[in-house]
């Protein structure tokens, strides 16, 4: 016997989670944008969208975050550390690509230095993922060897049932079981037929791409210039990528007092690798685009045995000049044949 969560019980579940002190967060469409937001009622959730415009990483790695306040005195430097607010949270209705992306970034944030901010939020958050039953033309989880029901990173996986009535529940982790024990009694012991998963065609040959990227001869290939000529070097594809994780430190204030913040940064920006001397080792947009691809599909897998991409498709969906990693990897697949 499997468990079923009925949609019309969701408000009761939310009340139980609230009563247990959890913030409930989910995809919300408001003010002409869809993103993860704290909710009070199930009605605020937008289950109609395939994927929110903004990613799940916003919840773990916000675009700007204060780290500490400093005051430089004559004798000493005083600092006051800021940490994330420390609320227990449950995210309801994330998608497998976004959630896999969090699992992809875990080893990165825990590699030589354990990122306090990332892991504090990770351990305080339960993620309930809903498998995808529809996809758009940009979705490409399958090209990354993931699937519309990939479990990576999820604590609970829900499979939508016929007629929008609810979801089949798969408890994947201890944390997920704990959160769902809070709604014991609201779940039905029944089985049902889950809706068929979204059909997501494979768009490129990942292994062939990796091989091509690993070949040192291709580093200086003219291909990089051709493919990136129209790239305008904005931060859209990195900031809206759930796995992109680069950041910059900025001190806000004057010489003696201020706040040090951790802000998103992007390898697409000319300033990203600019040295104090004025020399820039990645002085052209093509070198920057190559870095983005190399990092995701060559260096990152080399280090962590994972691709730094979960196939959400946002980099193509949102690029102002219709670029994106899909086209590049499709072209590389052709080159490698």
């Amino acid at each position: 016997m499997t468990k079923i969560l009925l949609r019309d019980r969701l408000d009761d579940c939310i009340s139980r989670w609230h009563a247990a002190g959890l913030d409930v967060i989910g995809p919300v469409s408001k003010n002409n944008i869809s993103q993860f937001d704290t909710i009070q009622k199930a009605g605020e959730l937008d289950f109609g969208i395939i994927l929110p415009d903004r990613t799940l990483k916003d919840l773990f790695f916000p675009q700007t975050e204060p780290m500490f306040r400093y005051r430089i005195g004559k004798q000493q430097i005083d600092t006051e550390e800021y940490l994330p607010p420390g609320r227990q949270r449950i995210v309801f209705g994330a998608r497998p690509c976004d959630v896999s992306a969090m699992a992809i970034d875990d080893p990165l944030f825990g590699w030589d230095y354990k990122d306090t901010y990332w892991f504090k939020r990770r351990t305080e958050t339960v993620i309930v993922t809903i498998a995808c039953t529809s996809a758009d033309e940009f979705c490409m989880c399958t090209s990354l060897k993931l699937a519309p029901d990939s479990p990576q990173g999820s604590d609970i996986l829900l499979r939508p049932l016929e007629g929008n009535r609810g979801w089949l529940v798969e408890e994947l982790t201890e944390r997920g079981r704990d959160a769902f024990s809070l709604i014991e009694g609201l779940l039905e012991n029944a089985t049902g037929d889950p809706l068929p998963l979204a059909v997501v065609p494979v768009k490129f040959d990942l292994d062939a791409c990796r091989e091509w990227l690993q070949n040192p001869e291709n580093f200086e290939s003219h291909f990089w210039k051709e493919i990136s000529m129209r790239c305008i070097g904005c931060g859209t594809c990195t900031f809206l990528c759930p796995t992109c994780h680069c950041f910059d430190f900025q001190d806000e204030g004057d010489t003696y007092t201020g706040i040090r913040r951790k802000n998103w940064d992007s390898c697409s920006f000319a300033l990203f690798t600019m040295h104090t001397s004025g020399h820039n080792p990645r002085s052209t947009q093509s070198a920057r685009w190559r870095q983005r691809i190399m990092h995701k599909f060559n260096y990152f897998p080399g280090k962590f045995s994972l691709n730094s991409c979960s196939g959400c498709g946002r980099c193509t969906r949102e690029c102002p000049v219709d670029m994106g990693i899909t086209e590049t990897l499709q072209e590389i697949t052709k080159l490698s044949k």
């Binding site: 904005c234 931060g235 998103w264 992007s266 102002p320």
Partner: peptide
């Protein structure tokens, strides 16, 4: 706004 500077770059 996420300061992606797409407005500027385009």
């Amino acid at each position: 706004c996420i300061k992606c500077y797409a407005c500027r770059q385009v």
